[in-house]
Computed example of a mutant assay.
Amino acid sequence: MTPDDIDVWVGLDVGKSAHHAHALDHDGNTLYDKPLKQDEKAIRTMLGKLSKHGRVLLVVDQPNTIGSLPLTVARNMGIAVAYLPGTAMRRTAQLLPGDAKTDRRDAHVIAWAALKLPETLRDAGPDDETLAALKLLAGHDEDLAHESTRHVNRLRSLLLQTHPAFDRALKGERITRDATLALLERYGGPMGVKRAGIEDVKDWAKSNGLRAGRIIDDMFKAIGEQTVTVPGTLMAETIIPSIAHDIKTIRDRRREVDRQVEKLLE
């Protein structure tokens, strides 16, 4: 099926319990932009409504595990399906205005790429051997994700116990950023960071190509909010680097899994 055969391009940012769907027509006008339950009836209803505008192409960002149901429903309805690899999605996102990481924007990026850059799409209908390999990789990636979550929770527990303000400075996904993990692996916790001094920490980050200026400033601001040393801090400082290293290693392994998935779908 060529781009000329399509009338509606649907980008689906998939999630465990819900997705976000964004549909565009030939002219780039939005036909649909709503959250979507991870439910066959909801998916079928959405695709049925969009089919009234013509031939539909459904494009997902994950073709296995949580993306399997939408693809299966679409195939059952005779709707064309495709997959946008992660690297292509990140490059496309840089072409569009805004930099917020939201499900809604990601769905729009997927739909826009499908409409404007069809050469970036990959077939989402693998053969049996490829499908089996994808399932194995998906299971492996799920195990790695659980392992990463366990390590992150342990890291947060140590920081929360010894220096709550420092933990707050690394709220949300900030604690798992490459720059943050690199700093924690090198300096340990707040005590090690403070001992090195802000200039040394910034110099090291710059020399290692880390974009961490804001994070470092917030770290030192948080360090200044606590004057006492909580019992157990010294031991925590020796544990934190190894946990940060483990999280980085797991993340690298997950990235390798992503590369393997993309290679299988080429």
Rank of each mutant, 00 (worst) to 15 (best):
R75M: 03
R75A: 04
N76K: 14
N76H: 13
M77K: 04
M77H: 04
M77C: 06
M77D: 05
G78Y: 08
G78F: 09
I79N: 00
I79L: 05
A80N: 14
V81K: 03
V81G: 01
V81D: 02
A82G: 07
Y83P: 02
Y83R: 05
L84S: 13
L84N: 12
L84T: 11
P85A: 11
P85M: 09
P85C: 12
G86K: 11
G86E: 11
T87P: 08
M89W: 04
M89G: 15
R90Q: 14
R90D: 15
R91S: 13
T92S: 13
T92Y: 09
T92E: 12
A93M: 03
Q94T: 13
Q94M: 11
Q94H: 11
L95H: 07
L96I: 09
L96A: 01
P97Q: 00
G98R: 00
G98L: 02
G98K: 02
D99T: 11
D99Y: 10
A100P: 08
A100L: 10
A100E: 10
A100N: 13
K101G: 03
K101A: 10
D103Q: 09
D103R: 04
D103A: 08
R104C: 11
R105A: 06
R105I: 05
R105H: 06
D106Q: 10
A107K: 00
H108F: 02
H108V: 01
H108E: 12
V109R: 00
I110M: 07
I110W: 02
A111T: 02
A111C: 08
A111D: 04
A111F: 02
A111S: 09
W112M: 07
W112V: 05
W112D: 07
A113K: 00
A114Y: 12
L115H: 09
L115M: 10
L115S: 00
K116R: 14
L117C: 09
L117V: 07
L117I: 08
P118S: 01
P118K: 02
P118L: 05
E119A: 15
E119M: 14
T120A: 12
T120E: 11
T120W: 03
L121S: 00
L121N: 01
L121E: 00
L121W: 06
R122P: 08
R122E: 10
D123P: 03
A124Q: 01
A124V: 05
G125Y: 08
G125M: 11
P126S: 02
P126Y: 07
P126V: 02
D127S: 04
D127E: 06
D127I: 06
D127L: 08
D128V: 13
D128G: 09
D128Q: 14
D128P: 06
D128C: 10
E129Y: 09
